[in-house]
Amino acid sequence: MREKYAQATYSDHALFNLMLLEMFSPEKGALLEFGSGTGEFLHAAGNGGWRAVGIEPSQMSRAYAKYKYGVDLVKDEWKSTQDDDSAENPDLPRYDAVVFWHVLEHISDPFAFLKDIRNLLTTQGKIYFSIPNSHSLTNEVYGPESPLFIEPDHLYHYTDANVRELLNQAGFEIISIFTRQLVSVSDVLIDAHPHYGPNTPFVERMALLAKWQGERRGHEICCVASVKE
C-alpha cells in the first residue's frame, strides 16, 4: 500500500518541505526529524546536503524506510524532560534544524514538546513543522466527517491564531507561517462544495484557490520559527 503513495509523498511533501529549509536555512548543517514515517523527507534532506537523523516509533515504517531508501531511522518516542535535570545538559546533541511534519497534532503535551525542542537547537537553529488546519476548506466541505477531524489520534486541532499563541508561550518567534492546499486534491473539494460543484469552470476554480489561500484556508499550516532572543 505504501508503494502506491511513495511518489506523491516524496514530490508533494518531502521536496516541498526541503525547499522551506533551503529558503530559511541555506547554510544547512545537522537536522533532527521527529516522526520520520517511511523516510521520504529524511532521504531528501540527506541528499540535499543535511546531516540528517530521524526518529520513528513504528517498526513497519522504519523497515520500509530502510528497504526503499536505505535510511536508518531511530526507534524512539518523545517523552517530556521538563521535570528532568538532564533537560539543560550541555552534552546533549544540538541541531541546526528540528522538523516535525504532521506530528504536533499527535502530541499529548505540545507545550512541553516545544520547550524540549528548544534545548536541542543550536544558537541559530530553527524549527520547521506542518499541522492540519482546523480553518481549512476541507473541514468546511466535509464538516464533522472531515478526515482532519475523524482521525482518533489527532489530539488537538490548530488554527493560525492558536499556533502563534502556543509558540509565543513556548519561547519561539515565528519567521514564517502560511497555509497550503494541494492542487491535486482541490478539484475534489470544489466538486463536493455545496456552492460550486463539478460544473465550476477552470478559471473560477483557480480564482477560488487563490481566494482560499489568501484567507489561509489551506489543508495544512506550515511554520518556521526560531528561539526568542
Rank of each mutant, 00 (worst) to 15 (best):
R2M: 11
E3A: 15
K4G: 05
Y5L: 13
Y5H: 14
Y5W: 14
Y5K: 14
Y5I: 12
Q7C: 07
T9Q: 15
S11L: 13
D12T: 12
D12W: 07
H13T: 08
A14F: 00
N17A: 03
M19S: 15
L20Y: 03
L21A: 00
E22R: 08
M23E: 12
F24A: 06
F24H: 12
E27I: 06
A30V: 08
A30W: 12
L32N: 01
L32K: 00
F34C: 10
G35K: 00
G35N: 05
G35P: 07
G35I: 02
G39M: 07
E40Q: 10
E40D: 14
E40H: 09
L42R: 00
H43F: 11
A44Y: 01
A45K: 00
A45I: 01
N47P: 02
G48D: 04
E56V: 06
E56N: 04
E56H: 03
P57M: 06
S58K: 05
S58A: 08
Q59K: 09
M60V: 08
R62F: 01
A63C: 07
Y64F: 15
A65F: 01
Y67F: 12
D72K: 02
K75E: 14
E77Y: 13
E77I: 11
W78K: 00
K79L: 13
S80Y: 08
D84G: 12
D85K: 15
S86V: 03
N89D: 15
D91A: 15
L92V: 04
R94D: 02
A97P: 06
A97V: 14
A97Q: 06
V99Q: 04
F100M: 02
F100I: 00
W101I: 03
V103D: 02
E105F: 06
A112S: 15
D116Q: 09
L120H: 05
L121N: 09
G125H: 02
G125R: 00
I127P: 00
I127S: 03
S130H: 01
I131V: 13
P132H: 06
N133I: 09
N133G: 02
S134M: 06
T138N: 13
T138K: 09
N139V: 11
V141T: 03
Y142D: 03
E145V: 04
E145N: 10
L148Q: 05
F149E: 07
H154A: 06
H154D: 00
Y156S: 05
Y156M: 01
D160E: 12
R164Q: 15
E165C: 06
N168Q: 11
Q169A: 14
E173M: 10
I174M: 04
I175M: 04
I177Y: 01
I177T: 03
F178R: 10
L182Y: 06
S184Y: 13
S184W: 12
V185P: 02
D187T: 14
D191F: 10
A192K: 07
A192Q: 06
H195W: 07
Y196T: 03
T200E: 01
F202Q: 12
E204Y: 05
R205A: 03
M206F: 08
M206C: 11
A207W: 04
A207S: 15
L209D: 04
A210S: 09
A210G: 08
A210L: 11
A210M: 15
E215G: 06
R217F: 04
R217P: 07
H219R: 10
E220N: 14
I221Q: 01
K228E: 08
E229F: 07
